[in-house]
Design a protein around this nucleic acid. Structure first.
Lengths: 409, 409
DNA sequence: GAATTAGTTTGTTGTGGCAACCAACTAAGA
DNA sequence: TCTTAGTTGGTTGCCACAACAAACTAATTC
């Protein structure tokens, strides 16, 4: 039985919402900008723009900034989003830290905090600390404006969009944690958004980072695991139940090694920070020479990606080879996704952007071999602009998006 | 530089179009139905429904069918799509045949024709014959109505949506054939749609087949090659340049055999009719016993999928094993796509539906092992309802869709 | 005739678009 | 310095057209 959806009818409110949204979008991407310019870029009539700006101005979302002459003629009144329109709180539950970001409506950072999480801390304790941080954040936000506009939380796992429950977060070893319900107990009185960390990061790069201006975006990020997100026409592709874009668990080699998810040969088993580290450690144990040998002894077989990249830059053959091997598998997976999804741009985040100078050429070799020319020749492949901040930035974008589209009372 | 798109503004015409479209959709799926029922199911006001029906009636798309009493009260006037509103022509260029279908607006078949194509006939000759068939089809259509509503052609290859050019059709060995331009020379005077055969088939199954009522659909079909299509929110997912959904060229085994596309270990190399046939032939050559041994000798190593399935039904161990092996690789690929796309339903067409009774259990084993539970437990996997007709049916759907949404003059 | 359901008439509200207008400036000549 | 022309920004008043709501008529059952 197909799920029944209420059909979306059209009415004047919808028209107003579309156009308000359009104006807000233009303001966000092109401010400071005059009414006349807005009319040109949006194709809306001058009068309509004035009317819409009036409404946005009354609601406090927009303010006049000053005049600007363009040579001849009457000078334009420049408009911009009003930073004081409200504040937004965004958080990330990562594998080993909690991060919270508060911005105004510009959106400029008001406050930011990061706290470590010890491995295998229980969900209850982590959520209690998160809630405490969120209350603190909300207080900081009130310094800027009384309007709390929304709250977004990104998590490293699958989220059921219908209930806001974390279904499964493999690297936290959490299952069925009703995050949204917990946050709603706190009565923040604002819309709350819970989503997968990679989805949020995708939106973050789209609004504020490397994917700005692109509407067909594939984002792939590797850290402990490998996750991703997809934008179609600027909107997150969520699939039927909201658990799409688990690219890390696509099978790359049917007889590969076992993954945390139970499958064998998942892409994630080839491309993640541990896989890279392991390559180095086993080679050194086999007696291979490397700049990293000393450090690995000191730190009990643990070596960060940053250190490996540093060694590679210093010309360390093992480090270079290890990164390149990972790069080839990165390329194999990206090629498959290019053929399946035909994006305009691929944004690579997490360790993928840290090690980009060695990863990209290796990945590109495979992409050239494996992707169809019509997919690979039109696509751009770039590093993420926001590193570990991409997720919280995306949380801001999520709330932003909801404000832009829900400006109707 | 991101491609610049003109922002879509909202106005009353948009509202009208949305609602007309909504009414047409409801009529298509629920006819015969009364104005009052339409008002209920669409959430549009009674007056609005009456007004919209008025417009559609004047344009000839809708007609009254008779009365129906629901017990007490005034009986309802039932409405339905007017079969005589116009006719639609749809065609498929397949690897070894041309097919043309003409329907009325109901849409009931008016005329249908199929002609074989000899291997490696030049594009010019094939297109000339296609054009001749289309003119004939158009004449047949005029018997029903003077309104020629649209023309759709599906092709077994990559289509550049911007120009309607066939970029590459591997199994026809065509490159850069400007199909749309050729068709426009004929001055049919109607909208012409050119698309990949699998995309059209996807739409065909969505409108008239196994995916009816589902909006997040993954369609996969194997014959000579392996192709597919994806619907997100009922709309075809085309990617940035229209060449998405080439699932057959996703890498399943990085060190697998070479594919026509130049890559190694493409999914398509494991799942297609030739791969199945080859398994049987080589096993028999090795001396293995099989019901198919005789036939293969007679027919020079050529055996159809239907014959293999027949042998499997008769208990032939080799046939069963061969199908199951293909089924496992089918399952591996589907599992990856479930994780990446999280569809509501997967529709399997071509040889996949012909051999479903043996393929599905084998595929399902792999899906259970390899797909994340939240993806595999919610998805339905079914056989296509339309076999080799799915593409032309989809062509009808394509034109249908354009009529439904472009009812504005 | 009362009750019920279907569909229409009449009038209201709210939307964006258009043409004309006012406002504010620059450029340039007397 | 004054005046006039030209240019650009933004507003006003009106219109077309959308959905909608209230009150109606129409057709049926009980």
């Amino acid at each position: 039985m197909p799920k029944q959806t209420v059909p979306q009818t059209g009415d004047q409110a919808l028209v107003r919402q579309i156009n308000l949204s359009l104006i807000m979008h233009s303001l966000r991407t092109q401010a400071p900008i005059s009414r006349a310019s807005l009319s040109q870029t949006t194709n809306l009539n001058k009068t309509t723009v004035s009317d819409l700006i009036n409404e946005l101005s009354q609601r406090g979302f927009v303010k006049e900034l000053g005049m600007q002459s363009s040579g001849t003629g009457r000078p334009a009144t420049l408009l911009t989003l009003n930073p004081g329109a409200g504040y937004i709180v965004s958080a990330e539950i990562a594998v080993d830290f909690l991060e919270v970001l508060v911005t105004d409506f510009a959106p400029q950072t008001i406050w930011q905090a990061k706290e470590p999480i010890l491995p295998s801390t229980s969900p209850e304790i982590v959520l209690d600390r998160l809630v405490a941080m969120l209350h603190q954040a909300s207080t900081k936000g009130q310094a800027v404006s009384k309007n709390f506009l929304g709250l977004a939380v990104g998590v490293p796992g699958l989220v059921d969009q219908a209930t806001g429950t974390i279904l499964f977060a493999p690297n936290l070893k959490w299952r069925n944690v009703p995050l949204l319900a917990r946050l709603e107990q706190e009565h923040f009185g604002v819309p709350i958004f819970v989503d997968n960390e990679a989805n949020m990061a995708t939106l973050g790069e789209h609004y504020f980072g490397a994917a700005k201006g692109y509407n067909e975006v594939l984002y792939i990020s590797a850290n402990v695991g490998l996750g991703g997100g997809l934008l179609r026409n600027g909107q997150l592709y969520r699939g039927a139940t909201g658990v799409a874009a688990e690219y890390g668990h696509m099978t790359i080699d049917p007889y590969g090694e076992r993954c945390n998810c139970g499958n064998y040969g998942c892409w994630e088993t080839f491309v993640n920070q541990n896989a890279l580290c392991k390559k180095i450690v086993t080679a050194i144990r086999r007696g291979e020479d490397s700049l990293l040998a000393e450090k690995i002894k000191e730190q009990k077989d643990c070596v960060s990606v940053e250190m490996i990249v540093e060694a590679a830059r210093a010309g360390d053959a093992l480090a270079i080879r290890a990164i390149q091997e990972v790069g080839r598998y990165l390329g194999i997976g990206i090629a498959s996704l290019l053929n399946a999804l035909n994006p305009e741009i691929v944004v690579l985040g997490g360790i993928l952007s840290i090690a980009s100078e060695f990863l990209f050429p290796a990945a590109n070799d495979e992409i050239q071999k494996r992707a169809l020319p019509w997919n690979r020749e039109t696509v751009k492949i770039v590093s993420a602009a926001h590193g570990s901040d991409a997720c919280v930035k995306g949380g801001i974008a999520t709330v932003y998006q909801s404000v832009l589209s829900l400006t109707r009372s």
